[in-house]
Design a protein around this nucleic acid. Structure first.
Lengths: 114, 114
DNA sequence: TGTTTATATAAGTAAATTATTATATAGTTA
DNA sequence: TAACTATATAATAATTTACTTATATAAACA
């Protein structure tokens, strides 16, 4: 039996957090792949600080975690987070965003950076 | 096989819409009961125009519909909306908000109004 | 050790959001 | 038909958000 129930106040905060195209896509990607900041900068075509700020919000609620690997800081989903089951059900209803990483690979941007 | 997949842009807009405590609670209640505007005014303790504006946003995406019944306008969930399956999965993970209507009944406010 | 590189933080700004009060509208009822 | 009642809309103010540019930080590497 899957236990994903969550308080309504927390749910509203989470949905607001995910109710942004950039963050929602980030989380969908991170659900399958770890990514570094510069990859997201390429993918979303916004400034690096903007990406850092989105990631911070996701990190502040514990939905993602960071880890340094050499020169880069990689972000990944924190599947241990209390809210993850709730978020997971939501992500499962979204179309795969793998094509965004594929585009980076084609451009060579993924390699350059990470 | 449940088909609930939704474009990521639409999903972000929907989540933003539901990422508000008042609207999320409204939709959760409406998923089980029809309600009139004045009931929501009582429940949320905000002004009537504020409630009308929230309902309008929900109606604009087609998630709820309105129907006049005598003196009052009742809102209900539009289960035929394309986004409903997506929203339903989400609502199923939220705790029941029936106690809010029960409180109204105890106060007698539900009867006075509707 | 000094420079470079990746990322984070600070400060500022424009746009969006959510509330409020005032007013319009449209049924209901006396 | 006139007055009342429930709801919607308009106008506005306060707050929040999501960018931007400038700058700080900290690890990597020459």
């Amino acid at each position: 039996m899957l236990k994903t129930e969550i308080e309504i106040d927390s749910a509203a905060l989470l949905l607001k957090l995910l109710g942004d195209k950039t963050r929602l896509t980030m989380v969908k990607i991170l659900d399958n792949y770890d990514c570094c900041v510069c990859e997201f900068v390429e993918i979303f075509n916004v400034s690096q600080p903007s990406i850092s700020q989105h990631l911070r919000k996701l990190r502040d609620v514990g939905l993602v975690k960071e880890e340094r690997r050499g020169q880069w800081i990689f972000y990944s989903i924190n599947k241990r987070n209390d809210y993850y089951p709730f978020v997971e059900q939501l992500l499962n209803q979204l179309p795969d965003q793998d094509f965004r990483l594929k585009e980076l690979e084609e451009q060579g941007t993924r390699i350059t950076c990470c």
